[in-house]
């Protein structure tokens, strides 16, 4: 059918398209270990074309209505596994969850965002993913379902390394639960010609609780989280003093990877620059408003 060879064709597999969550979970249970779940497909098909994975079954979740929901309930935004990134972009998250909005805007391009999903980006478990650092900074949780039960775990710690995720073969991340608190936040990314970042910074500041999570992604196998207590950030003190503390902390404690795309030193400088931009954006604006 095609020109042959990797990149152009997909390995052979059996395609399953369940119509309900129950059916999905039971076929996942039945083919456990031999099946991959496909939501948008942009990540999975790319891996399959390069023969990095060749599952016997591909289970599509595009016709599962339960996973298509995007709803706010009890102060939590629940994003279903099959909610496309473009749907998130056009929802009301722009003001209520600025970190997520900016992160979603940074994922690939608008055409891919019509196909890809937030949960898919998380489940792909690549160090340069945009969803994972943003979700950690917002202290989101993931609902993981399997045939007989479901569990809710913090998103932080879900990804163990490149392509490794703390979800069993017969389980699916059915929803991501993001708490809706009073927050200010931003997401900054430095990409060098490609859409994959060399370093990204997600910052969420919980205004009522006076604390923040600054998450550095793309620079090491798993993201690094920095809290206000780590840098001894004092909200009553001068902004300049706090920034100096943050800079010192980054200098001493953040050790980005050295690879073909960029050296560790270069990444370190990028992280420093992005972190300072992020705190300026989030904290200085607030001070001006007061």
């Amino acid at each position: 059918m095609s020109f042959g060879g990797p990149y152009f064709t997909l390995p052979k597999f059996k395609y399953l398209r369940p119509d309900s969550l129950e059916e999905l979970l039971s076929s996942l249970h039945e083919h456990s270990g031999n099946a991959k779940i496909m939501s948008g497909g942009v990540g999975l098909l790319a891996f399959m074309k390069e023969r990095l994975t060749a599952p016997e079954y591909v289970i599509s979740i595009s016709k599962v209505p339960e996973l298509k929901t995007l709803q706010i309930k009890g102060g939590v935004l629940a994003v279903g596994a099959n909610v496309h990134l473009s749907e998130l972009e056009s929802s009301s998250i722009k003001n209520s969850l600025p970190t997520l909005y900016r992160a979603v805007k940074n994922i690939a391009d608008p055409t891919i965002r019509n196909m890809g999903t937030l949960v898919g980006d998380l489940a792909e478990a690549v160090p340069w993913g945009d969803a994972y650092p943003a979700l950690i900074s917002m202290e989101a949780e993931a609902e993981i379902s399997k045939k007989s039960s479901s569990r809710v775990v913090p998103v932080n710690g879900l990804v163990l390394g490149l392509g490794q995720i703390n979800v069993d073969d017969d389980e699916i991340i059915s929803r991501v639960l993001i708490p809706l608190r009073k927050v200010r936040g931003t997401y900054l990314k430095f990409a060098n010609g490609s859409e994959y970042g060399l370093a990204t910074v997600a910052l969420t500041y919980f205004t009522e609780e006076k604390r923040f999570n600054l998450v550095i992604g793309s620079a090491s196998e798993t993201p690094v989280t920095i809290r206000e207590s780590d840098v001894d950030w004092d909200f009553d003190k001068d902004f300049g003093t706090n920034v100096e503390k943050l800079e010192r902390y980054l200098q001493l404690n953040v050790n980005p990877v050295d690879d073909l795309l960029a050296s560790s030193d270069f990444r370190k400088n990028v992280i420093r620059y992005l972190s300072l931009q992020a705190v300026k954006e989030v904290f200085l604006d607030e001070r001006d408003q007061n």
Partner: peptide, 8 residues
């Protein structure tokens, strides 16, 4: 708009 090379 969607990229047809990444769709089954």
């Amino acid at each position: 708009p969607m990229k047809s090379c990444m769709l089954l």
